[in-house]
Design a protein around this nucleic acid. Structure first.
Length: 274
DNA sequence: TGGCCAATACTG
DNA sequence: CAGTAT
DNA sequence: GCCA
């Protein structure tokens, strides 16, 4: 279990504790510890047993040390598992909706046993949020708008983040002999504020026959930071990068590169119109 | 043992 | 205006 | 929960 995973569990536990109505300062401690672990240069798993070193990390004390031992020892945190049984995982997503906090989520849960985005949206539309204590028309309206906003940006990445990622990948591709061009298409090329996934078009001699294409794809999957291959075909490979960004790389013969660029830059609506 | 972030929006 | 949630 |  790496530091990122440990921190993740701690963050999640904090969120769940919040819904559970736990002491806010204790919750903060969980978040502080998570941050400290995330930023720590060495792997916590390598330091287990060395209490001195662990306690030396600011934000890690007696109690958190026990939590770490439990996580690394049993592979799970009891508190985390219990809270997950008591509540619903979908509540963690709900927490990401601006203006929707733990108290309100718990309130909605207690009143309607609803814990997901869809359900809360329906309740709001039906005017069932405003009748809850402490809620009102303002809250309900604002909630609807917030859900809309959330849906619009969820699972998308800011343009500059996407650009850097795309540039790294394109560089990696261009280092391969037989690749002439590697260019991002899609919403990134259209300059949208956010990007859902990357679409990168490649062309050159290496794209021209089957064996060459396979060799090129073999090179592509060595890309640093590549986490999972989603699909691997003749002319296209899809994978997920560290950070969860999905990437499609398409190999194109030089004579179809132009039209492909046109097509994959979109937008879909634009293509339909054409 | 006691303190741990402040400002804002909304409800009652 | 005070209390509460974000 | 952690820290002074």
């Amino acid at each position: 279990m790496d530091n990122k995973s440990i921190a993740g569990i701690l963050y999640e536990t904090a969120d769940l504790m919040e819904i559970d109505g736990a002491d806010s300062f204790r919750i903060r401690s969980y978040r502080n510890a998570a941050e400290a672990i995330e930023a720590h240069p060495q792997q916590i798993s390598d330091l287990i047993g060395n209490d001195k070193q662990l306690l030396a990390i600011s934000g890690i004390g007696k109690g958190m040390l026990q939590n770490l031992k439990e996580m690394l020892g049993e592979g799970r945190l009891k508190l985390h598992a219990e809270l997950l049984t008591k509540y619903r995982p979908s509540m963690l997503q709900l927490l990401k909706v601006q203006g929707l906090g733990p108290k309100t989520i718990a309130l909605i849960w207690s009143a309607y046993q609803v814990s997901d985005l869809e359900g809360v949206e329906s309740l709001a539309r039906e005017g069932k949020i405003r009748i809850l204590p402490r809620m009102g028309e303002k809250h309900e309206t604002k909630l609807l708008k917030a859900i809309e906003d959330y849906r619009r940006i969820a699972g998308r990445f800011l343009i500059d983040v996407a650009e850097k990622q795309a540039e790294k990948i394109a560089d990696h591709l261009r280092h391969y002999p037989g690749v002439e061009k590697a260019t991002p298409a899609g919403s990134l090329r259209r300059g949208r504020e956010t990007v859902g996934d990357l679409d990168i078009l490649v062309t050159g001699p290496a794209c021209c026959d089957d064996t060459e294409r396979q060799k090129l794809i073999d090179h592509i999957i060595k890309l640093p930071g590549l986490m999972e291959i989603i699909a691997r075909g003749e002319n296209k490979i899809s994978f997920r990068m560290r950070g969860d960004m999905q990437v499609d790389v398409r190999l194109l013969a030089p004579d179809s590169f132009g039209s492909a660029m046109q097509y994959f830059t979109g937008s879909k609506a634009h293509n339909v119109a054409l």
